[in-house]
């Protein structure tokens, strides 16, 4: 048996990519963002670094964040240089990401 296909890869849309992951979303956000701190942040490393692409800059200089599809990896608070911008904790027990083939 063989599988053929193009050797170049159509990029999977980010939405489809994240749809492969199971999340048991809690009603309580485990990460909260004080976007007033982000407003003055020149680096904004979280935008590129977050593997789930959860940090979205807004046109007015703010930052949108949604905790629902979070891997709970910790990258955002590690790369954040804005003191106090990100309040990070684990989701309540039994919630959050649930890997199957990791």
């Amino acid at each position: 048996m063989s599988v053929t296909g193009p050797l170049t890869w159509p990029l999977v849309s980010f939405e489809d990519r994240m749809a492969t992951v199971d999340f048991r979303v809690s009603s309580r956000a485990h990460i909260t963002l004080d976007s007033s701190v982000c407003r003055d942040c020149p680096a904004r490393a979280c935008i590129v670094a977050c593997p789930a692409n959860l940090f979205v800059p807004t046109s007015d200089g703010g930052m949108l964040f949604n905790y629902e599809q979070c891997f709970e990896c910790g990258t955002c608070y590690m790369v954040c240089n804005g003191e106090g911008a990100i309040s990070w904790s684990y989701p309540e027990g039994g919630h959050g990401v649930a890997f199957k083939r990791s």
Binding site: V3, T4, G5, P6, L7, T8, W9, V12, D16, R17, M18, T20, V21, P51, A52, F71, C73, G74, T75, M78, F99, K100, R101, S102
Partner: peptide, 23 residues
């Protein structure tokens, strides 16, 4: 990485089952 000439023939046609990340 998947389009690298050495890697592409190994992964062609494979379909994403799960994406994951961790520190």
């Amino acid at each position: 990485l998947k389009t690298h000439p050495m890697v592409a023939p190994l992964v062609r046609g494979a379909e994403l089952q799960e994406y994951s990340a961790h520190l």
